[in-house]
Design a protein around this nucleic acid. Structure first.
Lengths: 206, 206
DNA sequence: GTTATTCTTTATCGATCGACAAAGAATGGA
DNA sequence: TCCATTCTTTGTCGATCGATAAAGAATAAC
């Protein structure tokens, strides 16, 4: 098990693929685009990654483990649901509006409209979105159990709400709405979870 | 100026094109798809509409004049900003989750990820989204002037917020989140404008 | 060295993409 | 009736799509 060693950095190529798929989506990037972006002949790309679709899926996994993983990290690290959600919103805006980087969320934008033959890719990304919603709901349920949020709080409604806002932020960022304007909406967005908590530190909305 | 009369209903064909573009997006629909969906040879489609892109633009205009026009109608018809926004949210959810119809908003979903050669189409749809945001901001500014909302209200932040939620609802609906769950989030979404109004009829959020 | 294995290079493959040319058919106006 | 105009039919265009075959080059195991 030896063979000729690969002459390019696979991780580097994968990162380039992630960026171009993030920018223009799965169907918006052709093999010719990948050849020029990665600087590799198509046969080399196929040898290393298998197919355009397999490369895309690996690119999404990389995105989700790095830039896209802020929600998982915030939920794991913040002591309360309110702090977790505020951090998620702030980091979402920052991640989605970084200079020199693609705007919006790759998981939301890279395969929303698909040809019927690529419906499988769309559904696979939908799974990522559903899981993010589920993790928000789960964290909010825990906050109700912990007594952080009022017992009459419906965690699923609240989780659906924050999933909706996060999805909307991607579209807004992709449309070029500046970071400052998106950050400015966060106190308004926080009203929901704060009003489900016992009155303490309300944000000044609007 | 006479010539052979057209043998098919142009409006009917346009409605079919709108539906398939709404379902799968501009790039997700091929001319072969249009030929089979409209039941017309490609030369007939070109004769009637000019090009795939011209047909798409006409289809979006039709969408915006009918299904997609609920925001314009609500703003024109409702006496207060709060009533207008609540109606917009409700009709958005209803429009985006109608049985047997494509889910989500055509303007949001039909060209979010585009090949570089179709960037013009994406920007054109972005214009529709920006105008919707602007009309929300404008209505909220008027509400501040009218005294419906507190004078310290920042109408642009609030308008950006509702634009974000509306964009997010499209993604949620496309992902198959059921109507009942999306409707259930509306009281939470209404918290923002209600807290900018003088205390009266607050929704029971969560 | 020999062999098995893997990567690189080069040149394509058939399918599909959006679009159109040319000829025939149906209308209104002269 | 004949013409100008417009639509319909048929066939196909060059470009691009994702993907691969075949041959040469570089490694490790033996």
């Amino acid at each position: 098990m030896a063979g000729r060693p690969r002459e390019f950095d696979r991780n580097e190529a994968l990162a380039k693929a992630r960026d171009v798929f993030w920018s223009r989506g799965y169907e918006g990037v052709s093999m010719a685009d990948l050849v020029s972006t990665l600087g590799l002949a198509s046969a080399r790309i196929y040898a290393a990654f298998g197919s355009k679709e397999a490369l895309f899926r690996e690119a999404v996994e990389l995105y989700d483990a790095e830039e896209g993983g802020f929600a998982t990290r915030a939920i794991a690290e913040e002591p309360t649901a309110q702090l977790a959600i505020e951090r998620i919103l702030r980091e979402a805006v920052e991640t989605y509006t970084r200079k020199g980087r693609p705007h919006g969320c790759m998981v939301v934008l890279a395969a929303t409209n698909c040809a019927s033959e690529n419906e499988g890719v769309r559904e696979w990304l939908e799974g990522y979105r559903r899981r993010r919603t589920a993790s928000l709901v789960e964290r909010l349920e825990r906050a109700v159990e912990d007594g952080e949020l009022k017992p009459e709080t419906d965690a699923r409604i609240l989780g659906d709400y924050y999933a909706t806002v996060l999805h909307g932020l991607s579209v807004q960022a992709r449309d070029g709405v500046p970071r400052s304007r998106l950050l400015a909406t966060i106190p308004t967005v926080m009203l929901a979870v704060c009003s489900a908590a016992y009155p303490r530190s309300f944000p000044r909305a609007t």
